[in-house]
Nucleic acid binder design. Structure first.
Length: 272
DNA sequence: TATAGTGTTATCGG
DNA sequence: ACCGATAACACTAT
């Protein structure tokens, strides 16, 4: 689930439900998710402290800890969710984006757990185990957050190389927060073929892409995630473009399954 | 049973 | 060294 909007939701769950509660125990024994793994390192850094703030940039989150402790970094990967459970095991917050459900715990895939002194728990629930928990994450390597990126930084990100424009939109070092679905939406909104080389994108096209990015990110944050975006439900074999009814085309761009409108998003650059 | 998948990164080749 | 493409990672759902 996690692209920028989903991660922002997870961050807000932590902020709402997990700050300022003393940490009694930490399960960091999943050596795949908790990396680099030195057994008990994360536990030792957290026990006795509290989380004091929850931050996000792109798809990465990190929490400050009390008393000048280490920073706790959390990345949701492809399938991660943040769940905060009460001591009786009932879910009180988090889980599926925007649903706000209270589901009695199916926590089979809790790969990292912080237990508070009151018995409550903060969990990274991640079936695929592609999420990551680590201390002092290198957040500075990320580009500016897609929500609020400047026009200059955006233009550089798009046009600064020959890779497909979709790949550049998804490059977290250039812009942080755009994933596979958001990228398809942004390119569809802007009527630009995903495989066009970045450095061949014209000025007006860059402007369209920036507007689409702002619009799509804002809409997904407001409406409940990237699944609510206009083109996502049409990314399928019998899908048709909601604007002109033309068939949607599927291909692989920048290593990811990509869908675009067969008539509106053409590979050739516009004639100037 | 086979395949695809909302992400990241190490590795390889130009 | 830079840039981009690809494979690998782990595991579930369809």
């Amino acid at each position: 689930m996690p692209e920028l909007p989903e991660v922002e939701f997870a961050r807000s769950v932590i902020e709402r439900a997990a700050l300022d509660r003393e940490i009694a125990d930490v399960d960091d024994t999943d050596a795949y998710v908790c990396r680099p793994h030195r057994a008990g390192d994360i536990r030792a850094a957290l026990v006795g402290r509290t989380l004091t703030a929850a931050h996000r940039r792109g798809k990465s989150m990190w929490c400050d800890t009390s008393g000048g402790g280490a920073v706790l970094g959390i990345h949701l990967g492809m399938s991660g969710k943040i769940v905060v459970a009460a001591k009786d095991g009932d879910e009180i917050d988090g889980g599926d984006y925007w649903e706000g459900r209270r589901v009695p715990g199916d926590y089979r895939w809790a790969r990292f757990t912080v237990t508070f002194t009151d018995g409550g728990r903060l969990m990274l629930v991640d079936p695929r185990r592609l999420g990551r928990v680590r201390l002092d994450p290198p957040v500075e390597k990320l580009g500016p957050d897609a929500k609020g990126i400047t026009a200059a930084a955006f233009a550089h990100a798009v046009t600064g190389g020959t890779a497909p424009v979709k790949g550049r939109l998804m490059d977290q070092h250039l812009i942080a927060g755009i994933g596979n679905l958001l990228a398809d939406e942004i390119l569809w909104q802007a009527r630009i073929h995903p495989a066009r080389p970045g450095d061949e994108i014209t000025g007006p096209e860059v402007d369209r892409l920036l507007k689409s990015t702002r619009k799509s990110v804002r809409a997904a944050l407001k409406d409940g995630g990237v699944h609510t975006l206009d083109i996502i439900g049409h990314r399928r074999a019998d899908g048709r473009c909601p604007r002109d009814g033309a068939p949607m085309v599927r291909g692989t761009v920048a290593g990811r399954t990509t869908w675009w409108c067969s008539t509106e998003q053409t590979r050739s650059a516009p004639v100037v």
